[in-house]
Structures are given as C-alpha cells and as structure tokens.
Write a protein that binds this DNA or RNA. Structure first.
Lengths: 233, 233
DNA sequence: GCCATCCTTCGCCCGGCGCCGAAGCGAGGC
DNA sequence: GCCTCGCTTCGGCGCCGGGCGAAGGATGGC
C-alpha cells in the first residue's frame, strides 16, 4: 500500500470538480484538447492548463502535441477503472440524487474503450453462460467455441490478444455487476461501433461531461447481438 | 455517473493525508476509536474529530457509540474496494518508491475482511482451477465439490451465503490479479484466523497505518492449505 | 459528588489552491 | 512578415480547509 501521503496526493487529483469533469469526459477513451476540456469543466483556459499540468504530472493523463493543439487522454485503463469505481461509490453514497440523465445512459455506454451499462453486463453474462470465455490465470481466456463465435461476429481477436490483458472484469457502477474490459472488451466495442450496431447519442448540452459515451443499439445491432448471444439493452 | 461535483466531493474525502491514513488503518475491517485513529494519522484529537465527522457525513464510515468511545469502521465493502483500487493506482503511478514494508506485506494480508496478497490471489486461482467455484450471474457460486471441500476445511458456508454477495472478485493492488471477496472471502479469512492457520504480524511502529493487516501463514496453516488446495504464500 | 477519560465544539491562524485577466510563447494560415 | 489561434506563464485575489489550544459536554469509575 502506498504511504498515506502518496495515496492522498493521487486521490486529491480526483477531488476537484473541474478535474473530475475533465476526467469523466475522457472516460470515453478519446483524446481531447485543452480547450475542449476547459469548456467541459466550465473554467477558463489558464485554470484548465494548470489542472491539466497537474494531472499529467501525477500520471493520470498522457498528452500528445499535434500542431497548436494538445491532446489529452487517460494514461491507462487502470486510471479509467479507478475513476469508474470511484464514480460508482460516489453514486452509492448519495442515493437521494436520481440518475441525472434518465435511463438511457444506463442502457448502453462506453467505459473507457469497452461496453458498459445493461448491454455490457448482459454481454458479459452471455459470454460466460455460453462458455465463450472461461476463467484463466489473469482474467478470462476465449474457448474454441468463443473464438469461432467472436470471429463470426467480426471481432478482431488478434488485436485483442496483443493487449496487455486479453480480458478481465470491470465493475459496472450502474448495474453493480461486472462487464468485460481488456483487449477483448475493446475489440468487441470497436466491432459494434464499426458495424454500426451501436450509435452514439448526441450530447445533452455543450458542456456535457458524458458526451460521446452515451450509446444506443441500432435495429441491426439488436438483431445481430440478439441472434448470436441473446443480449439486449 | 455522478455529477462532477458529487464525484469530486467523494474523492476529496480520500484526498487528505490524515484521512487517508485513517482509512488505510480501517482497511483491516476492525472498528477503531477516534483516539486510535488520531494517533494513526499523527494529528490531535480536535482535527481527528473534524475529519471523522466529514467521513461519516460523506457515508464512508459508520460510527458506533459504546460508552465514552466512538468506534469507527468502513461503511461498506464498496468503500474498502474503492480504497484498495485507488491505492493500487497510486502505487502504479509512483513506481520510484519501493514497497516501504518489505515483501512480507505482499505475501499475505487482510483486504477489509478477506485475504489478499500472494496468498489471496493463489487461493483464488486454486478455487477456480479446482472448480470449487464457478462463474455465476453475480460473481461466483460454489460447486458441489467446492461446498464439500470448503466445509471440510471448516468454512461456514451458511454464514457466507447470508452476505449480500456470496463471492466476487476484488482486484489486488500488489499482485495485480483478483482475490476473493464477498461472504465467502470473509468466511475463509475468518476460518483461517480462527484455526490459527494465519497469525497477525506485529505493527512496525506505534502509528503504523498497516497494523493489524499484516498476516503470515503458520506452519499448521501452510500444511493444511497446501494439502487441500496447493496454495502457499 | 468528584474526578478522569474520551470526544466534540469554538475561535483563531495560516498555507495552499482555484480562479481570473494580462501578457508571453509557438504553430499555422495567408 | 503579419495576424490568428491555442495554450501556457505570471501576478494577484479570495476562500476553503486543516492545524492547534482552550473550553465544553458526556460517560464511567470510585
């Protein structure tokens, strides 16, 4: 365990409303510029710059310069997992507040680069139930039946295997059950978006921190995923 | 997802060195008095009282009055899981610092009320590998062979089943692999401590935030767990 | 009743940090 | 070369919050 000081330093980086809004916006897995993040957080450019410096310095974000823009993204999926888990805890601790964005957000969304929400957890359950994945030392491995089925859906298994972890659980804060993360989770989400089985819902406001993460199943997607795995959102 | 303000409010509760020390101390699952927590955090009684009020108000701790003492404990295992995960992230982000307490702490320890460290993850792997537990909708379920085996070890399965969740994964920050939490995790740890298969190591200093969490396998424990499951620390 | 112990509340000080406006770089566009 | 645009740095302001000492309940022992 880290020293209390080191622990608190990391937690304090998450403990500011402006930084929290930035990090939530980056949970979509996309890289955003400093200006976009300033708008999401509702602060001016100087303040945003200071916040982003601290987040990069603290190792939570990585930055990529391109022309006059500076693109920021979460430094790793561990960071994303910690943010999701803390978000779930925060929701559990403040039950009086209802889901501010209605039920649509709970149906299907991106958690960093993989699927979450009811769709994500039912997909996870379906993969386990049909024995497409089986427990392994470091999370989950694909069974022969799973390899065939996933390949048939168009999931790039080679790309998934190149990830640091092939497949592991990520706790879902809205459903309180795990969904699939790791390389396989990423490739399944990419496949669904590529084939337009999932579409992105529009942001609810210009500074919507959850923009680009809301998803909804298209008719084609509902049909294909229902046939192959019996899942729905 | 909570609003950025609510998220930040929760994270800020973790983002103070004194509160972090208190929370780490409470990860053992025991209830500690305000005075003990003040000593752990290295601050005076008034400051500790203010911190504890905020933690209780924020829902992270629950308090139990008994005589002149006020016993504080983590409000739920979700809180413990979030603290463990954030601890792992903090360690991953600051690699220059070596494990301050040597390797003993990585061998076996308590994570809230269940086993973690090398012993915890190898136990998890053994339970899966021998098919004593199998994936279920909400985590893991015990197989018939598992029920027999666990009962033979002396684990109170009825008590485990009364928990909100029978068995689920908890990510281990030192091993980066899951160990077993939930009712079953708690009962296994309780069984090992009750039968003195595991002993508590002494604190390294009077204000050791990790006190009461360090464990070590006794000769008897190493023999019994090795025979039954092939695990060791 | 009296004191000891544990904890909280009150009043106060101080440091840190979050914000902005203004100014300063750096990269592109023309 | 000049302007525009995106971002950072600097200086200054204000406030929140964390620390302590002193005083004030509350509980238990005697």
């Amino acid at each position: 365990m880290p020293t209390p000081a080191a622990f608190a330093a990391t937690a304090a980086l998450l403990g500011d409303p402006a930084r929290a809004a930035m990090l939530q916006a980056l949970l979509s897995g996309e890289a955003l510029t400093a200006g976009e993040l300033a708008r999401v957080a509702g602060i001016g450019a100087p303040a945003a710059s200071a916040h982003l410096s601290r987040l990069v310095e603290g190792g939570l974000l990585s930055v990529h310069r391109q022309g006059r823009h500076r693109y920021h993204r979460l430094a790793s999926e561990e960071v994303a997992a910690a943010i999701e888990m803390l978000g779930g805890l925060s929701l559990a601790l403040s039950p009086p507040r209802r889901w501010p964005h209605g039920d649509a957000f709970r149906a299907a969304r991106l958690c960093y680069d993989h699927l979450a929400g009811r769709l994500g957890v039912s997909l996870h359950a379906a993969l386990v139930g049909r024995a497409w994945i089986a427990p392994a030392a470091d999370g989950w491995a694909a069974t022969p039946a799973g390899e065939a089925g996933l390949d048939g859906l168009g999931v790039d298994l080679d790309a998934a295997r190149r990830a640091r972890r092939f497949a592991c659980d990520c706790m879902d804060w809205s459903e309180r059950r795990p969904h699939l993360a790791g390389g396989l989770g990423r490739e399944i989400a990419a496949c669904c978006l590529r084939r337009r089985w999932l579409g992105r819902l529009p942001p609810e406001s210009p500074s919507d921190p959850l923009a680009r993460r809301r998803l909804s199943l298209t008719p084609e997607g509902a049909r294909r995923l229902g046939e192959a795995l019996g899942v729905s959102a």
